[in-house]
Amino acid sequence: MPAPFPLGVYDSGVGGLSVLRAIRDILPREHLLYVADSAHVPYGEKTQEYVRQRALAVADYLVSRQAKAMVVACNTATAAAIAALRARHPDLVIIGVEPAIKPAAHLTRSGVVGVFATTGTLASPKFAALVQREAPEIRILFRPCPEWVLQVERGEIHGAAAAAAVAAPVRELLAEGADALVLGCTHFPFLREAIQDAAGSAVPLLETGAPVARRLRHQLQARGRLAADGAGAVELTTTGDAAALGRMAALLLGLPGVATRLPAAWC
């Protein structure tokens, strides 16, 4: 019997597992329901309307499962769909993610910040507004890296393959003066080791998992919806290959490699 009132965590693929990891650390008693829309990954090169419709379908599924919250653990989906999601489900706690522009603006000494993200995130009006609001005096360098998403989806996060994938984009932004780098896609923290090696230990890398987890805890606490007891659990679901998601969850987070496929109506 499915557990009632889970916390839904949604991404186009496995990248959102980086956010799920942070949520599990800060809310260990909760039942976490992870939805990977892997049949439609990657999102970054798709239209905003396409991504919006996928996000709405996943939200409808989570509501059918009596979810008490939805974390859109995908920068592209947040930019394209967060307003539509909140309009459709006004009683559901819905939290999105956005690149860590504000803390990067505080950390930079050169006045130049580099942002790695997907094309969809970087092209969105929401991202442009974020930059204007949080870092109007900072020079922001944008580097779309859709190939990094596929790198993580293949599980190639260590060794020579990962190093080769990240080397040129990192060198490019450092050469233009960036001294703080933002990982503006939830897939990218899984390449953190390779990116840090390419950038050097003195260059800070900023991601959003922990701040999102804290914001989720605050909103649930304010509504009296935190789990009071229990050991918590993680349930993995996908619109794609369940066995593949299970293998990636085991590789990336050390979770038991068991996942299920969503019913066809939600795929």
Rank of each mutant, 00 (worst) to 15 (best):
A233V: 03
G224M: 05
R217K: 15
L236E: 04
A231L: 13
T239F: 05
E235L: 09
A244Y: 08
D241S: 04
G230M: 06
L226N: 02
R215M: 11
V234H: 02
A231P: 10
A222H: 13
Q221N: 15
A243F: 00
G230N: 10
R217F: 11
L226P: 01
L245R: 08
D229N: 05
T239P: 05
A244C: 06
Q221S: 15
A233G: 11
A242Y: 07
A243M: 05
A233W: 06
T238M: 07
Q221G: 15
T238N: 06
T239A: 07
R225E: 15
L220H: 04
E235D: 11
T237D: 00
G230P: 07
L236A: 05
R223P: 02
G246F: 10
A228K: 10
L216F: 12
L216M: 12
V234Y: 05
H218K: 15
T238W: 03
A243V: 06
G240D: 04
D229L: 10
D241C: 04
Q219M: 14
L220M: 05
R215G: 13
T237Y: 09
A227R: 07
G230Q: 08
A231H: 11
L216W: 09
A222I: 10
R215D: 14
L226W: 01
A233P: 01
Q221H: 14
H218A: 15
G240K: 03
Q219S: 12
A244M: 05
V234I: 11
T237I: 00
G240A: 08
R217T: 09
E235N: 09
D229R: 12
Q219C: 10
A243Q: 13
Q221I: 02
L226D: 02
R223I: 00
A242G: 09
T238E: 02
R215W: 08
R217P: 10
G246P: 09
A243Y: 00
G230T: 03
R215E: 15
L220Q: 06
R217N: 11
L220A: 02
A228L: 12
R225K: 14
A228D: 06
A233R: 12
D241P: 03
A222F: 04
R215Y: 13
L245I: 11
A233F: 01
A227D: 14
R223F: 00
A233D: 14
A244G: 03
G246E: 08
R217A: 15
R217G: 14
G240E: 03
R217D: 11
V234K: 07
A243D: 14
L236P: 07
G224F: 01
L236W: 01
R223S: 00
G232C: 10
T238Y: 06
T239H: 02
L220T: 07
L220I: 01
G232R: 08
